Every structure is written in structure tokens, then in C-alpha cells.
Computed example of a mutant assay.
Amino acid sequence: MPSPIPVHRILPKGFSPTISLRPCSSPNQLQGKAQHFSFTKQYKALPRRFWYTVIWDELKLLDLLGSGGFGWVYKGTYYGKTVAIKKVRKCTKNKLAARQSFWAELNVAHLVHENIVKVLAATASVPADPEAEDSVGTVIMEYAGGTSLDHRIYNCADPLDVGDCLKFSSDIVSGLSFLHSHSIVHLDLKPANVLITEEGRCKIGDFGCSHKLASDNDLTPNVQLRHLAGTYTHRAPELLRGCSATLKADIYSFAITLWQMMSRDQPYSGDRQCVMYAVVAYNRRPSFSAIFNESSMGRKIRSVIHHCWEVEPNGRPNAKQLLESINSLAAQL
């Protein structure tokens, strides 16, 4: 079943997910029997309630971390534990898109991995609060730190060295490999959606564009996007052409992300439509700067990037193959 939700589905104010709505059903729900949510080690002290139950009295909003068309993300506490709270905004122009974004966030609700931001609780109901009227749902996630990879690349005085680039790449692709093993394609992988913890580990977040594919085949084109998901600078050429999504779309997005880590530059400049046309019609890609030619390792990373942003999805490696290549390069340092 294509995710996040069928076009005809209307979210109720307070819903109780069922097996038929997977992967948005209760994470550990098996054979119709609801089981309690198993939190990661950091959050084991939280009460073992169903993930779709939010106890509003225990939720405290603190600092606003970010906002945009999707809604708002706050730092806060839940039962005394530090968390991130995402409130998905209603969209007056496209109400279905807002609901889809909320449900897409829950594609990873049943998954636990060290390189994926963990969903702790979520609900489509809202508290009796006038300010909540603009929200279609709330997602409570682990707090993975206040630094994004985008901030680390562009707003820190010290550039990432090759070792940092490979370490972060290993984290990101490890997360992708795990997602892809569950037939989930992220579709908006970019530095802004990768968080860096205090321990220096990268975690992939923001699954508002993600899809659960009907098959785990890397190249099975079984999701036809009704709108262009993700960020155009990182969007795979086949998606720009209106083709169906496959897992290989994330590999292309990773290539642009790795290029950014190495070059500390923006991938494209100019009008959005012109860039998209150039990528599709002329197979344009960001230019490789001198840093990619200054060492044998730089040239090897350039080769990895070039392989990952091939125009045809079947020309790109899958996440498992890519992870092996990156770890092999890291071992050579």
C-alpha cells in the first residue's frame, strides 16, 4: 500500500490505528494484539503507553527549534525527559498534503536505529487549546541535539575534514540502509534533515516526505508521486521527470549531501525551474572543486559521488553497497 495514506482517507480527531494502516499502526502490534511501545535506552523511564497516546499534561514546550511550511518543531519535555515536538501545520490550500505529511512522519514509528530519529509518541487529536487549531497532529521524538549537518557545514569556522565527511557519511548511509531494508524511502535527504548529536553521531530526521514502498526491490517503481516531494536541489532526476519513486532516489540525494560536506558550497545557483530543467534535460550536476583533486582520497570520494548521482537509478549503488564503499575508504585513512 502506498504511504502515507490513501487519498480517500480522512483523519478523525482521535484515531486508533489498526493493522490495516501499517506502517502507521502501533509499532509492536502483531497479529491484532496491541503490545506496549519499547523505547530506546534514553527514554525507557517514560511510561509504557501506546505510541499514539499523548498525555498532554506531561508535555511541556520550551524553545522553538524551527518552523516552515510543514509546521513547528519545539524542544520540550515529556514526563521530564527532553524531547523534540513537531506540530504539523494545517495547509489551507492542500489539506490532504498536511495530513499526508503527518502520517508520513509515522512511517518510522515502529523502527529503532542509532542513525534514525526515534518517534516516541504521536496523535492526530489536539488538546483543548485555541493555538492547536492550526495543527493536524503532533509527533513527539527523541531530542537528537540542536545542531544539523547543514549548520555544521556552512556555519562553523572549521571545515569538515575528509575523516569527518566519511564518518558522517557512514552514519547517514547506515541509517538509509536500515530504512531501505524496511522498504521506506526518505525522499528529502539533505544536510538540514540530518541532526548531529552531542556525541557526534548523525541521525536522519524529518520523514514528512517519506513513503513506504510496496516492495523492497531497489528499482520497483511502485509509488507515483502526486506532487514533487522533497527539495529540488537534492531531488533525483527521475522524480523531476515525474517518474515513480524507488529507493535509489535517496542515493542520489546522498550524493549531493556528500558533495556539500566536501565542498562547503551550495549545489546550484539560479532560478529553481532553470536548475530543474538543466538537471533533467542536460544531466547537470554540481561542479567538483579543487578539494576533490588534492589527494587520492578526494578523487576516490569524487568517484563515489559520481556513481551515486548517475542519471538512471539502476546505475547507482544500493545503500548496502554504498555503505561498504564508504567504510572501506574510512579504513584507508
Rank of each mutant, 00 (worst) to 15 (best):
Y268C: 07
P12H: 11
C274F: 10
N193D: 04
D57S: 11
H151K: 05
G146K: 04
S253H: 13
T53Y: 00
F168D: 06
S148D: 02
L247D: 04
K190H: 09
A192Y: 02
Q260C: 07
A290S: 09
M141K: 14
I196M: 11
S38R: 09
S25K: 03
Y52R: 14
C308H: 10
P127A: 13
G315P: 02
A331S: 05
H307V: 11
A34R: 04
R285I: 02
V223M: 15
C202F: 05
E142T: 00
L322K: 09
H110D: 15
I5W: 04
K90D: 11
L62V: 05
D134P: 10
Y232E: 15
E114T: 15
N222V: 04
I251W: 00
P159E: 08
C274W: 13
V54G: 03
K93M: 02
A236L: 12
L64I: 05
T40D: 08
G200N: 04
I5G: 09
L225F: 06
R272G: 01
I10C: 15
Y43S: 15
T197V: 03
I116L: 11
S263H: 03
P2F: 01
T197F: 11
V83T: 00
A98N: 13
R285C: 11
R9T: 08
Y79A: 00
A104E: 07
K87Q: 06
E131D: 10
G32P: 08
K90G: 04
K41C: 04
R302G: 14
V108H: 01
V7H: 07
V162W: 05
N115Q: 13
C24Y: 14
D129C: 07
F207T: 00
L64R: 15
P313L: 09
C209R: 03
S183G: 06
I326R: 00
F288S: 12
T18A: 08
I5A: 07
V7L: 13
S263E: 07
D63P: 04
Y143T: 04
I153T: 03
H234E: 14
E324C: 08
K81L: 14
Q266F: 07
A290H: 09
E312Q: 14
T197H: 05
S26M: 09
T257L: 15
S148K: 07
C91W: 02
V173T: 07
D265G: 15
T77I: 00
R302P: 08
F168H: 15
S295D: 12
K41N: 03
